[in-house]
């Protein structure tokens, strides 16, 4: 990396962000550019605030544990004249299942079915194929059922920095007050 130090680090960081199709994390950028993580972070902050100007159509966002350049929301109609999305929308059934996995992970298929009241095996397959969920282990107990969790792709798709950024689950107030023995799954 030493040979690159003649170059302006800010310009190097910008060029990496420009070509990246994935969010780049601070550690990766600092290693690639050969500067400290603190310096990297400072450069990222500077790029971000510069792009905030209305003269720029792109912005720097923090996504799935990294940073990525993307267009500003107002630009979408124009960009879509150039590129159009051909990914099918996530079905309601898949989205509900995904919500349960996101909040309860790691969770088994049976636990999801208990909440949704329907079989979810085909939905799980769809979500796996789209890379939104993954097997994260096995639960102890009879049959050692597979445990599911969400992926980095999930964070990217929903615009989250990390899983803790999920909005709070609408409190099932009542369940809290109900006697233990009638709680679902009890």
């Amino acid at each position: 990396m030493a040979g690159f130090l003649f170059d302006e680090p800010r310009a190097v960081v910008e060029s990496l962000l420009f070509v990246a199709t994935e969010p780049l994390d601070v550690q990766t950028i600092s290693e690639l550019v050969g500067i400290s993580p603190a310096e990297t972070k400072a450069i990222l902050d500077r790029i971000r605030s510069e792009l905030e100007s209305p003269l720029h159509g792109i912005q720097l966002v923090e996504l799935a544990g990294g940073f990525q350049l993307c267009t500003k929301p107002g630009m979408a109609p124009y960009v879509e004249k150039l590129y159009h999305r051909n990914i099918p929308a996530i079905s309601q059934a898949a989205l509900e299942t995904l919500a349960i996995i996101a909040y309860k992970q790691p969770v088994t298929r049976a636990e999801i079915e208990e909440i949704r009241g329907v079989k979810v095996d085909s939905v799980l397959t769809t979500l796996m194929e789209r890379g939104m969920i993954t097997e994260v282990g096995r639960k102890d107990g009879p049959g050692r059922p597979i445990l599911y969790g969400t992926t980095r792709e999930f964070l990217k798709h929903f615009g989250l920095k990390d899983i803790s950024e999920l909005p709070k689950l609408p409190a099932p107030e009542s369940t809290a007050g109900l006697p233990e023995h009638i709680l679902p799954g009890a």
């Binding site: 267009t71 979408a76 960009v79 590129y83 989205l95 509900e96």
Partner: peptide
Amino acid sequence: LEYKAFKEAAASLRKMEDRQSLFISRP
């Protein structure tokens, strides 16, 4: 109630998805 909570969570995921779809990054 538990199902309803997750149904609402799914609805907010949908909103987040819609919002995120406006942020277009390099394909």
